[in-house]
């Protein structure tokens, strides 16, 4: 499979490279236009549209995924650099029909309105809990500040992260 970058292509074929990575436990090998972001690879070519494109500049956090267990902005990650990497997206958090505890907490706490930032919030929250930065609402707010919510659901987002961390 040859994967384009979504950019206007200049004259002639743009340089591309093969890359093998694992996405939500499934091994994938693709040839990507070098300019392709991980976010575009996920959304446009793997059909994993849970990760959202907000700013496409690393400023909003809607595209947050885990790479080798660490939360990153997939919009600023070049797919070509991910040889051997393990990527987890929002689609990979649930265990079959069993939602991830943080996904369930977002529902229980009513921690979203429009939902656009929610996949990024949840994946980032999973990272935040793993990193152990959930000691207080203040700490959660600081360590979740890379995820913007235009609906302003912060109070409930913080509550969902705090409750999930407390259940661990």
């Amino acid at each position: 499979m040859l994967v384009g970058s979504g950019d206007a292509v200049a004259a002639g074929p743009a340089p591309s490279s093969p890359v093998s990575l694992t996405v939500n436990g499934r091994p994938r090998t693709v040839t990507v236009d070098n300019r392709t972001s991980l976010l575009d690879l996920l959304r446009e070519h793997f059909g994993l549209t849970g990760s959202k494109k907000g700013c496409n500049a690393g400023a909003c956090g809607a595209c947050t995924v885990l790479v080798d267990g660490r939360r990153v902005n997939s919009c600023l990650t070049l797919a070509v650099r991910l040889e051997g990497a393990e990527v987890t997206t929002i689609e990979g958090l649930a265990d079959g029909d069993q939602l991830h505890p943080l996904q369930q907490a977002f529902i229980d706490e009513d921690a979203f309105q429009c939902g656009y930032c929610t996949p990024g919030q949840i994946v980032s929250g999973v990272g935040c809990i793993r990193e152990g930065h959930t000691g207080s609402p203040e700490e959660i707010r600081e360590w979740m500040s890379g995820n913007i919510c235009r609906c302003g659901c912060y109070v409930k987002i913080v509550r969902a992260v705090q409750q999930t961390a407390g259940r661990k």
């Binding site: 956090g61 939360r71 990153v72 902005n73 600023l76 980032s124 990272g127 500040s145 890379g146």
Partner: peptide
């Protein structure tokens, strides 16, 4: 500085 995501990268 930055955000937790950016600091990881």
């Amino acid at each position: 500085s930055a955000s937790a995501q950016l600091r990881n990268m």
